[in-house]
């Protein structure tokens, strides 16, 4: 049985490029809030700056706060504390949440204030033309690392868990059912919950890394996904080259 989700949407189409994963995440997100039957009036989406920050704004027809680059969690903290009745959901990019906004992210997790933070991780700065992010894999080519990035990417779920998050999960957008389930769990979890959605960027990441073909880009993303059990057999270094998927709330 399917239900139309159009009543959640404010505009007839999104601004995302063909093949961008952010639109799939948008679809998963409205399904999650729809299934949870949250009172729309009390739903607040907060985002930073970047393509991912456009997922809620203007697309989702609820209260939206599209802020400045990196600070979405801090804005959300103020809104949630001042009106605890709000269900506060932050949606932003990897660059936004973890490069410029990394400090706010870990302090959000540390405070464990009730909010959900969703990171659309395309491993690059999409909006500004494909520069290196703090999530770019070693060796991946970007506009600012034409010979390949040299520094290790963050493991965002491990980062927020270490800082005190109540719940963390990572799924590729190509696993929408598990993604929706985790989004629902995250929204229902009291405290700071975090969902990382691996969301391919054909325009900026694929194009620079011999993955111009969207299908090839998605195939590659899926081939890199491994379960936590599979990850246990790998070294820390090897794990950073993969996407360890699943829920990370058991420690």
């Amino acid at each position: 049985m399917t239900r139309s989700m159009e009543h959640w949407l404010r505009v007839p189409h999104t601004a995302f490029c063909p093949g961008c994963g952010h639109g799939i995440l948008l679809g998963a997100l409205v399904r999650a809030v729809d299934e949870l039957a949250i009172e729309r009036k009390n739903l607040l989406f907060v985002s930073g700056i970047g393509c991912a920050a456009w997922i809620p704004s203007p697309n989702i027809e609820v209260d939206t706060l599209h802020t400045v680059h990196g600070r979405a969690v801090a804005y959300a903290t103020g809104a949630k504390l001042a009106n605890p009745k709000l269900t506060v959901i932050v949606v932003s990019g990897d660059g936004d949440l973890s490069s410029i906004g990394g400090n706010h992210l870990i302090h959000g997790a540390r405070r464990n204030i009730d909010m959900t933070v969703i990171c659309a991780n395309n491993q690059i700065y999409g909006m500004t033309g494909g520069q290196t992010a703090s999530t770019t894999p070693v060796g991946a080519c970007t506009a600012t690392d034409p010979e390949g990035s040299q520094y290790r990417p963050f493991d965002l779920c491990a980062l927020v868990n270490a800082a005190g998050a109540a719940y963390a999960a990572r799924w590729p957008v190509s696993a929408p059912r598990r993604l929706i389930a985790s989004l629902k769990t995250a929204i229902q979890t009291e405290g700071f919950s975090f969902v990382e959605a691996i969301s391919p960027c054909p325009t900026q990441f694929g194009r620079r890394n011999r993955l111009d073909d969207v299908t090839a880009l998605y195939d590659q993303m899926q081939s890199l996904c491994i379960t936590r059990q599979e990850a246990e057999t790998l070294s820390k270094q090897q794990r950073l080259e993969r996407f360890v998927i699943g829920e990370f709330n058991d420690d």
């Binding site: 907060v46 600070r71 809104a79 504390l81 709000l86």
Partner: peptide
């Protein structure tokens, strides 16, 4: 940065 951000977030809830 976060202080004024939180203030603005709170202001939009009516505070």
């Amino acid at each position: 940065l976060a202080s004024l951000a939180a203030v603005i977030g709170a202001a939009w809830t009516g505070a």
